[in-house]
Amino acid sequence: MKFSILVSEGPYTHEAADTAYNFTKAALEKGHEIYRIFFYHDGVNNGTRLTTPPQDDRNIVNRWSELAQAHELDLVLCVAAAQRRGIADADEAKRNGKDADNIAPGFRISGLGQLIEAGIESDRLITFGD
């Protein structure tokens, strides 16, 4: 089956990021396709490489990046939500006159249309959040 995932809560604050990751991993192991993972609301905070959790805790951001690399996943941060919360790639930083970017490897920034398209193209769009 072709799944897309919507993550709508931030990492560490809310378990949604963990559950979404575990679901994605399990679905891939079962041979399903993950068409796209879209991060919205505080979910965009899953995509900042500046995240530095204590050493004995999981690194939620690195975990996504590694999974994306291993399975060529499409991890998309909503541009409007990312701008509000200070998540930027090099282009966004330049366009908005910021002195740094912080997007993690394997993520890209794009518009909400990517969420709608994921709903159209996938068999199931599953939301992780409140």
């Binding site: 609301h41 409007a80 909400l112 249309g113």
Partner: peptide, 12 residues
């Protein structure tokens, strides 16, 4: 942010 999705989605 829900309303923003609805407005973008309307174009589809």
């Amino acid at each position: 942010e829900s309303l923003e999705v609805v407005l973008i989605g309307a174009a589809f």
